[in-house]
Design a protein around this nucleic acid. Structure first.
Lengths: 275, 275
DNA sequence: AAGACGCCGTACCGTATGTTACGAATTTTA
DNA sequence: TAAAATTCGTAACATACGGTACGGCGTCTT
């Protein structure tokens, strides 16, 4: 027995043909507002034809579309009428429904940000906003994708962003391009990689400003780093979560975007024109 | 200036004639559901005639009834998207410290998981746990790092994991290795990339099972996908956040690790010995 | 490889829905 | 108290919306 329409869909979505499944997915993704609009709107959003929408609601057990909408409205009314149900069933199903890994991850994110000061962030952002500085990024085995992600976004708002990739010998030679004004962002969590430590040491010797993203036990690179972001990584599993570092990277991107609003807007406009 | 329709009503209700005031009161009492139903329903509930309802919405500044309904729906959508902003911002003292981007990100993660059923996750995990299936991963411009990250972790717990990287021509040829038993994980958010759509279409034609990680507007690839994970990406900035998808990827990794506990433990032990 | 089945979209239809005109009733003003 | 203005409902109207029949297409079966 399904109490809500969302559950009903989850039950039957497997028995649906491709088109109707697509309808089900868009409804779930925009639940429930899209279902309150017209069949035409719904079908367009889902990328299928209107009859498919009607067949979809029919398969859910409704005799016609208005009956389906009425059910959605009743559900909505029941949900909105009693603020208790909302605070009990909606926001805190975290405890019952969500997996322990997710819960730990959210905790990690919170904790990580609690231990990072605004000043620290603004200082890093200020440094990244300097257009004359070159920015290099690199990460370890599991964290290099985050470095890559961050590089992709930094490239949007400013120039001179370089993601060090490939073999160690390749990017080790890039040291020659790094100077006092430049910044090296390193992601390194357990088990800390020897190659990264060597790189950090040499870069530090050249006067490069190092920003380190690591775990709460701190990579040895911290010794050379100007700024250290220590993210919580512990989850109830045999591996370490990098979600906190990922969110931290996004936050820096966001702050930097805001700080460079004028310049980055112009840059983005130019990029659009190049397409 | 009134931000919500409810406020708009409160502002003007004194200047209304009796009939329209009744309409306003019933709308506030059953907000907003009654306004989503037909004019006839609304008028009957309020005990007035339909033209009175029309005059009422007209007095609120809307040109016609559908426009009024659209406004209600938009408001509802905005409200439902972030059910936590209200319950979180008030009680938690963090709200002063944390940036709006971070808050939105945490909301996105919550919302994303709310719209994904456990069954969906367990089915995907079951498929990934099949040792005979080959697993291919690929992503778009900003999401490919997530694919890369996930691939790095999947490699730990099982074999036959391939991250499609480099030029399009390179990985397009890998299609030949894909068969009915295999799984293709695609990350694709706005703006959806043509090349990925083409790949998905061809893979689908070969009977490959596609798992799509996209945003709430659903990449066109959803048409070919067996499973669709719709992550919230909206943050108060000019770019889209991928954090929800990242956490979702980690969750799948965690679940898979648990599901393959016996085998993966043996595999990890073997890897340790190889060092 | 040929047939059968089921799915999906195009085109059309009937109707429920929003809309408007007009007159009765009620309130306001002189 | 009478006239004027405003409000409100009845009834007729047009349109857009939900619904359906049909044919093409892909997929699975024997």
């Amino acid at each position: 027995m399904a109490s809500s329409i969302a559950e009903l869909i989850a039950e039957r979505i497997d028995a649906m043909p491709a088109g109707e499944r697509r309808a089900a997915q868009t409804l779930v993704a925009n639940y429930p507002v899209i279902g309150l609009k017209t069949v035409a709107d719904f079908s367009q959003q889902a990328g299928v034809s209107s009859p498919t929408i009607l067949r979809f609601v029919s398969r859910l057990g409704f005799h016609n579309y208005p009956e389906f909408q009425a059910a959605l409205q009743d559900e909505l009314a029941a949900q909105l009428q009693s603020p208790l149900t909302r605070t009990v069933t909606a926001p805190s199903p975290d405890s019952g429904k969500t997996s322990p890994v997710l819960e730990a991850t959210l905790n990690n994110i919170h904790e990580t940000f609690r231990h990072v000061s605004e000043k620290q962030i603004s200082e890093i952002v200020a440094r990244l906003a300097n257009p004359r500085a070159k920015i290099f990024l690199i990460g370890g085995r599991f964290t290099d994708p985050i470095a890559h992600y961050m590089a992709a976004h930094l490239t949007i708002v400013r120039s001179n962003v370089f993601h060090l990739t490939g073999q160690e010998s390749t990017w080790r030679d890039r040291l020659i391009d790094m100077g006092k004004r430049d910044v090296l962002l390193i992601f390194d969590i357990r088990r800390y990689q020897e190659s990264l430590i060597r790189l950090a040491e040499k870069a530090h010797a050249r006067g490069v400003e190092i920003v380190l993203f690591t775990d709460q036990w701190l990579s040895p690179i911290a010794r050379f780093a100007r700024h250290v972001i220590a993210g919580r990584t512990a989850v109830p599993s045999s591996w370490d979560s990098s979600a906190a570092l990922f969110v931290m990277a996004e936050t820096l991107i966001g702050e930097l975007t805001r700080a460079m609003e004028a310049e980055s807007a112009r840059r983005i406009r130019e990029m659009e024109e190049l397409r």
